[in-house]
Design a protein around this nucleic acid. Structure first.
Length: 110
DNA sequence: TCAGTGACTGACC
DNA sequence: GGGTCAGCCACTG
C-alpha cells in the first residue's frame, strides 16, 4: 500500500464527508473531482474501506443511475435505503427517485 | 508472477 | 432505445 494510494482514499473520504445532508453523489463525480474520472471503480473500492468509518456516509454515494449498488455491503439488506430515506431522500426499488434533484456535484458545488 | 474480480462509466452496435 | 464490450486500478488467491 503506497502512501499515494492512501492519499487517494483519504481524498475520497474527505469528499464523502462533505456531502451535504439530504444529498447524494455518484462514484464518477467523486472520481472526476479527484482527477480520475476513469477510475470510478477505485472510488467504489475506497468506499469499501469507508464503510468501516462512521464519519464517511457511504450510503450517500450511488452509481450514475442512482441505483444503490453498494447496499449489499451494508450490515442489513435495506440499511442503506433506510439511511437515505431518513435524510428525506426518496428511494424506490433500490433506486433514488428524482436523482437530479438530490444530486450533489463536488466539482461544481464544492 | 499471473489471473480473476469488483460499491463504475462511457462508447459502440 | 436498450443491451453488450472494453477500460480503468487495486486487492486477493
Amino acid at each position: 500500500m503506497k502512501e499515494e494510494n492512501r492519499n487517494f482514499f483519504e481524498k475520497v473520504y474527505e469528499v464523502a464527508r462533505k456531502i451535504p445532508y439530504g444529498r447524494v453523489t455518484s462514484y464518477g463525480a467523486i472520481a472526476k473531482y479527484l482527477g480520475a474520472a476513469r477510475s470510478a471503480r477505485m472510488v467504489g473500492w475506497a468506499m469499501n474501506g469507508a464503510g468501516a468509518k462512521e464519519d464517511v456516509p457511504a450510503h450517500r454515494v450511488v452509481n450514475r443511475k442512482g441505483l444503490l449498488t453498494g447496499k449489499h455491503h451494508f450490515d442489513g439488506t435495506n440499511l442503506m435505503q433506510q439511511l437515505l430515506e431518513n435524510e428525506g431522500i426518496v428511494v424506490e426499488d433500490n433506486q433514488i427517485v428524482d436523482l437530479e434533484h438530490f444530486f450533489w456535484d463536488p466539482g461544481k458545488e464544492l
